[in-house]
Simulated assay, not measured.
Amino acid sequence: MRRSEFDRAVADEFGDRGPSLLTDLVLSEVGDRTPAEALRAGVPPRDVWLALCAETDVPPDRRYGVGRLDPHRR
């Protein structure tokens, strides 16, 4: 997952709450850091995304493959 895909996935899943989740929610799965801190520390976006999904109870069917553009829209 690229950072741009991560950003798109957060926006699609969390909408207006996304930015505050990235800066306020502490995730134990990425070293007790917020998603923004984890990304700055070099944690792969995919790992941060999965930790964020687990913490916020995003259903598994909405965790994988998100954030990618439709190949026809490229």
Rank of each mutant, 00 (worst) to 15 (best):
M1N: 08
M1R: 01
M1T: 06
R2E: 05
R3H: 03
S4H: 08
E5V: 01
D7V: 01
D7I: 00
R8T: 02
R8A: 03
V10T: 06
A11C: 05
A11V: 13
D12G: 00
D12Q: 02
D12W: 00
E13G: 06
G15S: 12
G15F: 03
R17W: 03
P19Q: 03
S20T: 14
L21H: 06
L21C: 08
L22G: 14
L22N: 11
T23A: 14
D24E: 15
D24A: 14
D24H: 11
D24Q: 12
L25I: 07
V26D: 14
L27F: 09
L27M: 13
E29P: 00
G31A: 06
G31T: 07
D32M: 09
D32H: 09
R33V: 05
R33M: 15
T34G: 13
T34Y: 06
T34Q: 14
P35W: 02
A36T: 14
E37T: 00
E37K: 10
A38W: 02
L39V: 04
L39C: 07
R40E: 11
R40D: 07
R40N: 06
A41R: 09
A41Q: 08
V43S: 14
P45K: 06
R46C: 01
W49Y: 14
W49A: 05
L52K: 05
L52S: 11
C53D: 11
A54F: 12
A54N: 08
E55M: 15
T56M: 15
D57E: 15
V58I: 05
V58W: 09
P59T: 13
P59F: 11
P59V: 10
P60V: 12
D61G: 04
R62P: 02
R63D: 01
Y64G: 05
V66C: 01
R68H: 03
R68T: 00
R68P: 00
D70H: 05
H72W: 07
H72I: 10
R73N: 10
R73D: 04
